[in-house]
Amino acid sequence: MRASSSRRALSGGAVLNAQPKRSIWRQIWIKRWCYLIILPGMAYFILFKYVPMYGIQLAFKDFNIAKGITASPWVGWSNFELLFRDREFFLALKNTLIISYMQLLLFFPFPIVLSILINEVKPMRYKRSVQTILTFPHFLSWVIVAGIMMNILANNGAVNNLLATMGVEKYNFLTDKGLFRYILVFTLSWKEAGWSCILYIAAITGIDPSLYEAATIDGANRWHKILHITWPGILPVVLITLILRVGSMMDAGFDQVMNLYNNTVLDVADILDTYIYRITFQRMPNYGFSTAVGLFKGLTNCILLLSVNAVCKKINGTSII
């Protein structure tokens, strides 16, 4: 049976090699079902990601809504000059980087550790229950989470009512600039850690069980198995998610910050996305200026992505490009 299959393969290979080179259209036709599946995705990216790039020129124009994009006059770099003179922009940039790094340092490792811990749980029913409970908050919108945080931390919220009952003075947690970024990391971890685990648990599941069996025979304990089998097994996945995360460092979580922040913590909470939203939709709109901020953010993300990708490729051979 095996010999017969091998012969067919060899013979097929020889036939393939002997065939004249097929046109690209012919190849597409042969794999048409695969391309059909790709088509809507490509259409989505072309329509909603590439076509709107036409609007990037706004960053170099004094946009007049009556004239439209094309007829509005070019102003060179003046929107960027305005940008680099704007105190709020630098504040937003600083906050974006700080919040992103905090998320990278405090949140990013959390689901990795969590998935390893879940993997070590032996009773299957308990393991699945834990996983389901941890995954559930992902399906709550940030509006709901913000409402929950208000109910917990506001002056007449649960925590303060508890403090008052114990005779302790109430504290305005939500106006404390020092606490706000930690509240962001905490809520992100609570909401997304379970969901992020799925990827790592899948990677752990893909590790050959015979490796663990061999390690057990060799006298390895749990810690040894995690360190020498599980961790190397999921490392490529960790690196890819790291590359993607760093590639979106300038996105510190619009939905989350928008719903949780308020004017009392604006100095430490205003990120580039909320800044763009405010200058575009909550003030006198200056679309050229807003586009300049967006373009700056996009380019920076792109540079970060390529840099981290190159570093990972050099160190580990893992990359996405």
Partner: peptide, 15 residues
């Protein structure tokens, strides 16, 4: 093939 067609239609409709 039917599945692929169905999936493509679904995604297009979603878009």
């Amino acid at each position: 093939r039917l599945f692929a067609l169905f999936l493509a239609l679904l995604l297009t409709l979603a878009c």
